[in-house]
Nucleic acid binder design. Structure first.
Lengths: 151, 151
DNA sequence: ATACATGCAAAATGTTTGCAGACTG
DNA sequence: CAGTCTGCAAACATTTTGCATGTAT
């Protein structure tokens, strides 16, 4: 089988070595936002000969090609996720480090409008909300949370 | 004279050493978002004996105390600014690296509402828009831009 | 006087790179 | 076969830390 990200690599004429195929697969299957170390760990499970330097080189390459996006949720290390089709944002539980993804078209529209008002075309953005579980719990957890422990 | 940030330090019962006083002053006077190296450079102008380790320790301390906020505009190094009374956001010119600050109450309200809808109290956030000067310039530069070159 | 701050240099992170050999297209 | 990729280890860049000494409260 050919993972989603492998297909994207092929479309962009990247040479598919065994290592890349594995990393592509790990990335395709990831539903969280792994850092390089974590990717290395997961990839190593498939082929222990992969070096962490290759993981670094691969994520950098895939980011340049627009296949991956680099995130910074604090904690020093970069984290990655496959470029989403639709934009989504992240809310990080300040206590547990859990990351909750959500989307909001109204927010998106507002941000574009804002940039436009300042004379710019919005190229990309970084938005992370840090929150603390509300004492008076209104709606229990909307959005879908992907369990990710703290760094 | 006693700089604004020095006053905040005193309120929090931090020991005001000569080095801290200088760093506090440099931070109080900064209208941009200097990184540690830059703070070190500016502080050194007042007292060449300050060590960069102290600058690191001081910004970390002031961040913990809520006096400073750490920013990441890309480029690997953390940058700092005094905690603002009113929230403001940043739009970074993707070409020049220039940082434009702006505020927007509607945006702020929306973000709070969003967090609330997910069951969280918004503690803090990170929002950076990356834009490219619009070809069809509607309004020439709203907001106030502080000239900051790329990393 | 005591607890905390500092300077220095060493260490710890996280990430990049030079090189010789291996592999893909 | 040409150009690219990989592993390894060394190099980097930024930030943190241990320790002996100095200083604010």
């Amino acid at each position: 089988m050919e993972s989603r990200i492998e297909r994207l690599c092929i479309e962009r004429r990247l040479k598919m070595t065994g290592q890349r195929r594995i990393i592509a697969r790990v990335l395709s299957e990831a539903e969280d936002h792994p850092d390089v170390e974590e990717l290395y760990r997961r990839a190593s499970a498939f082929d222990a000969r992969i070096s962490i330097a290759t993981v670094y080189r691969t994520v950098r390459l895939l980011e340049e090609k627009g296949i991956l996006e680099r995130r910074d949720f604090g904690g020093g290390r970069a984290r990655y996720e496959a470029t989403a089709h639709g934009h989504h944002y992240h809310l990080i539980d300040a206590d547990s480090g859990r990351v909750i993804e959500f989307t909001d078209p109204a927010l998106e529209a507002m941000l574009h409008a804002l940039a436009g008002r300042l004379g710019f075309d919005l190229v990309s953005m970084r938005l992370e909300l840090f929150g603390r579980r509300a004492a008076t719990g209104p709606g229990e957890a909307a959005g879908h949370a992907d369990a990710e422990g703290r760094r």
